[in-house]
């Protein structure tokens, strides 16, 4: 499972960074989205990977941390998703405004000279 997740994060982050370096603003925003998915998965992995583990400690049983999943990264991911979503929406608006004002979707606001 670790290998699959690591490859998934790597592919997402790699594609994201490649798209970020592209000149068109739409590619940049897709790149940012992919990068933020990669980061969210990464935060998740920084807890502990496991399947079917309960997140809440049962006070009756003797406490063994490895038998539970860490709830904190899940809370962090949730916050990061919400913030990332809001920022992407805002960036999209600026992108459209830029397209409207400059008449091009190049990130520099003008087409490169041939």
């Amino acid at each position: 499972m670790e290998l699959v997740l690591a490859i998934g994060i790597g592919v997402l982050a790699g594609s994201g960074v490649w798209l970020l370096l592209r000149p068109r603003s739409f590619q940049v925003i897709i790149g940012l989205s992919l990068l933020s998915y990669a980061v969210n998965l990464f935060i998740f992995a920084m807890g502990r990977l496991g399947t079917g583990l309960p997140p809440v400690v049962d006070p009756a049983a003797p406490i063994d941390p490895t038998a539970f999943t860490d709830p904190l990264p899940q809370a962090l991911v949730l916050t990061a998703i919400v913030i990332g979503f809001g920022m992407t929406a805002l960036f999209l608006v600026v992108l459209i405004v830029s397209r409207g004002l400059t008449g091009t979707d190049h990130v520099d606001g003008r087409e490169p000279e041939q």
Binding site: L20, L32, F42, L76, L101
Partner: peptide, 29 residues
């Protein structure tokens, strides 16, 4: 136009920085 043009780059840079920030925080955690 100047504001939107520089704003686009400002926002993109800071969104990337936010991702980098999160990677750092989660590694430390």
């Amino acid at each position: 136009i100047a504001k939107v043009r520089s704003g686009l780059q400002y926002i993109a840079m800071n969104l990337i920085a936010s991702s980098v920030f999160l990677i750092g925080v989660s590694l430390i955690y």
